[in-house]
């Protein structure tokens, strides 16, 4: 094992004790959902019946353990297999070959808007809706009080961009679009913010 193993850790999934949500480095996998095929180290655990389910989320892999096993006992084995599998991104074959990278970004955006950043907007009486994802650009619609407030818009764009980047580094920009405006407004592509934190 010459290549360093990617850093991972496991988190609990509320309500599903047999499931562990393994947080993996953002950008290590470019697909979401249940893969058609996984690399050999993980596939072996599926074949052996230790694992019963593998599902990819943005910057995370959901693994479900067979009923007879416990994470306390099998955690180290599964971790090793997952880390080995992550060093082979090509081995993860998505179920349908539409545009897995775009779907990954869309899933990341949805997760962000449903999470803390979305909650922040809602706490200010507004809301954020995902409109479209294309070529690394995420179009977001500002609704409620956020709409029409340029400062709020700019702040939100930055926040959303930072949050999405932490799940999918391939994102290049977040644009806020008006519900009636054409999605490709003039000069609408924002430059990268000067400061961003990973």
């Amino acid at each position: 094992m010459s290549a360093p193993r990617p850093p991972v850790h496991a988190e609990a999934v509320p309500g599903r004790p047999s499931c562990a949500r393994w947080v993996v480095p953002p950008g290590s996998l470019r697909l979401v959902g249940v893969p058609e095929r996984v690399p050999a180290p993980l596939a072996r655990l599926l074949d052996e019946g230790l694992l019963v389910h593998v599902e990819v989320e943005p910057a995370a892999v959901l693994l479900e353990l067979a009923p007879a096993h416990t994470w306390a006992a099998s955690g180290d084995v599964v971790r090793g297999a997952l880390q080995d599998a992550l060093t082979d991104p090509e081995g993860w074959v998505p179920a349908d070959g539409d545009d897995p990278a775009r779907e990954h970004l869309a899933a990341a955006a949805r997760e962000v808007l449903a999470g803390e950043v979305g909650a922040y907007a809602r706490s200010h009486g507004g809301s954020l809706e995902l409109v479209a994802v294309h070529d690394g650009v995420v179009d977001v619609e500002l609704r409620g009080t956020c709409d029409g407030c340029p400062a709020a818009g700019r702040t939100l764009e930055d926040r959303v961009l930072t949050a999405i980047r932490s799940l999918d580094p391939s994102v290049t920009a977040v644009r806020s679009v008006r519900p009636d405006a054409p999605s490709d407004r003039a000069g609408g592509r924002r430059l990268l913010p000067l400061v961003f934190r990973r």
Binding site: R5, P7, H9, A10, V23, V24, P25, G75, D76
Partner: peptide
């Protein structure tokens, strides 16, 4: 609450775990 999966044991794996937790 108790950790679902205990952290790894060997030094190199612990470094990875620490990196991952800190990033998270």
């Amino acid at each position: 609450s108790r950790p679902l999966v205990p952290p790894p044991l060997d030094a190199e794996a612990v470094s990875g775990w620490v990196d991952s937790v800190l990033a998270s």
